[in-house]
Design a protein around this nucleic acid. Structure first.
Length: 937
RNA sequence: GCGGGGGUGGCCGAGGUGGACGAAGGCGCAGGACUUAAGAUCCUGUUCCGUAGGGAUUCGAGGGUUCAAAUCCCUCCCCCCGCACCA
């Protein structure tokens, strides 16, 4: 069992069988029989190469697919490519513009696949988005083949193909008919310079430091015939206002909003122009002019002063800030500075009661030693105060009708109340200052006519819940989570002005957004290869209505569409046969976006019998304890797996290293360890391929033990596999069985091991083939011309599972362990070992009681035993049974020991005497059933 | 604050429907075999005590239920993720 060197050229084997599978087209799925299984894993986005983290999900998907094949299912596992959306477009634009950063990144990517000499030529073509997409789609499908995935490639497509566009249009028409496609106002991130919406990919560092849209409340402070407009995220603090702040270094302007005049910073005025209609910017207003005046707060009409402050930024909010020194640090500090310099005294107004603080802002500053408004830790201090106040704070009596209520519960109500009094309005701001990759400022603009999918209708949510109830999830916890997500789901923008994809059928200048066009596309897999034979023009609403919903008569329809009616019928049959999607396997980050849309759209469009049946999810993969990301430079491309580790080893690692619910940590050290064990395993296999199996009539006890153990493990593993507990199944079929084999070899011999392994070899290989298909295929072919991939799981040979045989071996194992322990503790080298079983005449009562107590609950055993034999030793005996956890089963100990005399003698290198009279230390009385007394000389 | 997941031996990481759990597996470490040697590989050991199969103490902290708790209940502390929230 020496696994010194790698005994196979794994790369060669991988390539050989992948070629062979492809040539024999064994993964091309055709209608056959009633037991079908349709498995999908999300199609990859083709903006770049995939790495080993992505590979986990696809690999587990393939393992499931291969297992289901072994279970006799007619299996469909298809794949396609996702091209829709803005990222690929943004990449092509950047490359066309000569953006060095992006070009460098893509040089890296391309170098994974191309010779250095070809890289620049390839990059040159990347000025067109379709070239980027096509390049990576082609490489990713090669990667997938090289990973041994059992995909039916005839059905591949990408999401910008005309046939797919037609399909998506159909989907949106169906949704439109249900009344859930709507138009409305919607805030977006926007670049003034570029004059368009910008997303994560367009924004400088947008991928690392996300920019989100924040709704601020603007509060109006009347000042003469104008209003000073202060933006805030904490409208509930209005009750504690003491003054307004403006920055003397900023510029303020008068703006006409409706028939009101507002005063805001120049920057804010510009932003307002993108957020409201009919904004008119009037003249500038001098800061000194403002500082001299007073404004009136909108609740009681108190006059409040306007002070200068350096911390106010004209480019954040409205450039006007209202001051609540009791809770806000900067304000408190600003007032202190003011007092020192100008002698102006402003008393904070306390409006929030919170345990542990009197005036929180002041106290936290004291605690943290913050002295002025310039201190950089003010931000941190504000955060602490905010959390405390928000969750624990209660509005006090100064807050009118809101007194006595927790901030967390009242915040929105205050906002609504203020708006109702025309004291407040809304202003959107980005969560941080951001610029586009070409340097343009990012602001928030409001689209007046954004298209949405409205997920709020009650009928839809009910269908969604019903669907979820009917399906299964693994890990199961996600089922409850999915119900919650369905409840939370509201409006979702479904189209953009920019990007690749399908034109929005109701307004052609909009493009359907990339998550909205990936919801029911699994249906497309069932027919994609045949739809290619249909002219695109024929793919109208009636076509898909017929294929997916059975609406219309095929003969008539074929005539109208001018297509072959047999083909049309065939396409429908294909859909009817494969649909629904029996299992969708993906990762948890998709739950609250893709997966919920997937479920909801199925619920809305398809009848119940076409609803998805199950979702399984695996956690992500990290590397050496850290998240994998391009920016960290710690990704391993999927394309390098074969070369660096070997595909089967990678697959084994994915299968065995962690359960679905656990993050896999890809550690180099662990791959080395696994490689050793994997080599040892394949060596055991290889050494048996040429061996002659043992005939049944020659089976010894040890042979029967191994067979029994093997088939028990096989049976357990199949059960685990069916429940997606692939890790347990894998560990059982690799590690545990290897331990069994090693033990067997010790008990028997290396020669005999080779023969007995031959008896189980084929069943073992079949069971492992979903996980490590290449090596299994290779070994299978040493004695077969068929593909192991197409075998069915052996009916478990239950007849080999023999409890008595296993018990006898357990008995022996525990005896050997006991003897070793004695030798070890007593530091003896034995010349003779004496064993005394409880079968001895003087001890035989123990067996009798043991048997009698078989079904007696533990509590009653002593009582029960005493009924049979009134003696103190009986109590001790029963206690010993408990302590040793001995469970009754019939065993002729003497016969087993006689049979194993040679083994024991060899194991301990000394003479063995069983149940002799000779007993110098009186050990006999310690004998227990199934646990002989031992005396060593 | 809410929702979800965690805290296990030198480290990583299983188990967790209560009992066979000093706790799988791996890494590391120690000893041994092989080797001219190193490496690789294999074997043995790896909480503490013990010259007879035993005992003691362990699974974030503290309580409890039980004949029996890493596993169940309560309280607390800490970590991660999502939400929320943040001029």
């Amino acid at each position: 069992m020496n696994a010194a060197a790698q005994n196979f050229n794994y790369r060669e084997i991988e390539a050989k069988w992948q070629r062979s599978w492809e040539e024999s087209r064994i993964f091309d799925a055709e209608i056959a029989g009633t037991k079908k299984f349709f498995l999908t894993v999300p199609y990859p986005y083709t903006s770049g190469p995939l790495h080993i983290g992505h590979g986990r999900t696809y690999t587990l998907g393939d393992i499931i697919a291969r297992f289901k094949r072994l279970k006799g299912y007619n299996l469909l596992f298809p794949m396609a490519f996702h091209v829709t959306g803005t990222p690929i477009l943004a990449i092509a634009d950047s490359i066309a513009k000569g953006d060095e950063g992006v070009i460098e990144r893509y040089r890296d990517y391309v170098s994974i696949y191309e010779d250095a000499a070809r890289i620049d030529a390839v990059i040159k073509t990347f000025d067109k988005p379709e070239h980027v997409a096509d390049f990576f789609a082609a490489r990713i499908s090669e990667d997938f083949k090289r990973m041994g995935y059992s995909i039916d490639w005839r059905r591949k497509f990408n999401t910008t193909e005309p046939m797919y566009n037609r399909f998506i249009e159909w989907q949106f028409k169906k949704l439109y008919d249900k009344g859930v496609i709507k138009k409305g106002r919607y805030p977006i991130t926007y670049s003034i310079e570029e004059g368009c919406a910008v997303g994560e990919d367009d924004i400088e560092e947008g991928d690392i430091n996300k920019v989100s849209i924040i709704e601020h409340t603007t509060i109006k402070f009347k000042s003469g015939d104008t209003y000073l407009i202060a933006a805030t995220l904490r409208p509930e603090t209005i009750f504690g206002i003491t003054n307004l702040w403006i920055n003397p270094a900023a510029t303020y302007v008068k703006v006409k909003v409706g028939n009101e005049l507002w005063i805001v910073s120049r920057e804010a005025a510009e932003k307002l122009g993108y957020q409201r209609e009919g904004i008119q910017v009037l003249e500038e207003i001098g800061v000194q002019e403002l500082l001299g005046t007073e404004a009136r707060e909108p609740i009681e009409g108190r006059a409040i002063p306007i002070f200068p402050a350096s911390f106010v930024d004209g480019d954040v909010g409205t450039g006007v800030v209202y001051s609540v020194p009791a809770t806000w640090n900067a304000m408190g500090k600003g007032l202190e500075d003011l007092r020192r310099k100008e002698g102006i005294e402003v008393a904070p107004i306390k409006i929030i009661e919170i345990e542990g603080y009197d005036l929180p802002a002041k106290e936290i500053c004291e605690r943290m030693g913050i002295a002025s408004q310039e201190d950089t830790r003010l931000e941190e201090a504000t955060q602490i105060i905010y959390k405390d106040e928000f969750y624990r704070g209660v509005m006090n009596e100064k807050c009118g009708q809101f007194a006595g209520i927790k901030i967390a519960a009242i915040k929105d109500e205050v906002k609504v109340w203020l708006k109702g009094r025309n004291a407040a309005d809304v202003f959107y701001e980005t969560s941080r200052k951001a610029v586009t990759r070409s340097g343009g400022k990012v602001i928030v603009a409001i689209l007046q006519d954004q298209w949405f999918i409205d997920y709020t209708p009650q009928w839809w949510k009910e269908l969604g819940h019903k669907l979820v109830d009917q399906m299964s999830f693994y890990p199961e916890k996600y089922k409850a989570y999915m119900h919650d997500i369905i409840d939370w789901l509201a409006l979702r923008p479904c189209a953009r002005k920019r990007g690749l994809g399908t034109q929005f059928p109701f307004e052609k200048e909009w493009i359907i957004e990339s998550l909205s066009d990936s919801t029911i596309y699994m249906a497309m897999y069932t027919i994609a290869h045949l739809v290619r034979q249909v002219p695109v023009d024929a793919l109208d609403e009636r076509f898909f209505d017929y294929v997916f919903l059975g609406i219309g008569d095929p003969g008539n329809l074929a005539r109208k569409l001018q297509i072959d009616s047999d083909l049309l019928i065939r396409i429908k049959q294909e859909f009817d046969y494969w649909y629904p999607n029996d299992l969708r396997h993906t990762a948890p980050p998709h739950l609250s976006n893709h997966l919920v849309f997937f479920l909801m759209h199925h619920a809305a469009i398809f009848p119940e019998d076409k609803w998805p049946r199950a979702i399984t999810l695996n956690e992500l993969m990290i590397r050496e304890g850290r998240k994998m990301s391009k920016s960290k430079g710690n990704v391993i491309p999927l394309a390098h797996v074969s070369e660096l580790y070997g595909v089967d080893l990678y697959r084994l690692y994915c299968a065995i290293n962690a359960d679905f619910a656990t993050v896999v940590n890809w550690r180099e050290q662990d791959t080395d360890a696994l490689r050793k064990r994997f080599n040892a395993l394949t060596t055991v296999f290889e050494e048996s391929t040429g061996a002659e199996a043992l005939p049944e009539e020659e089976f010894s006890h040890t042979d029967r033990w191994l067979l029994s153990t093997f088939y028990r493990r096989l049976r357990d593993s199949i059960g685990w596999f069916e429940g997606f507990r692939i890790r347990e199944a894998g560990i059982n079929m690799v590690f545990n069985l290897m331990n069994d084999i090693r033990y067997y070899e010790k008990r028997a011999s290396a020669e005999r091991r080779k023969r007995i392994v031959r008896n189980i070899l084929e069943d073992w290989l079949i069971m492992l083939s979903p996980i490590v298909p290449h090596i299994c295929e290779e070994l299978w072919h040493t004695s077969h011309d068929t593909f192991i991939t197409l075998q069915t799981l052996p009916a478990v040979k239950d007849s080999y599972i023999d409890e008595q045989v296993e018990r006898e071996e357990d008995y022996l194992i525990s005896l050997v362990r006991d003897i070793h322990e004695i030798l070890n503790v007593a530091r003896l080298t034995p010349t003779t070992i004496y064993l005394y079983t409880a079968e001895l005449e003087t001890e035989h009562w123990k067996w009798d009681i043991f048997k009698a107590l078989k079904d007696v609950p533990e509590k009653d055993r002593i009582k029960e035993a005493l009924k049979l034999r009134r003696d103190k030793s009986t109590v001790e005996f029963v206690q010993q049974l408990q302590k040793n956890n001995l469970e009754y089963f019939a065993l002729n100990e003497r016969a087993v020991l006689d049979r194993e005399r040679a083994y024991l003698t060899k194991e301990f290198g000394c003479a063995l005497r069983i149940n002799e009279e000779y007993d110098p230390k009186g050990k006999k009385r310690f004998a227990l059933p199934l646990k002989p007394a031992i005396y060593v000389e």
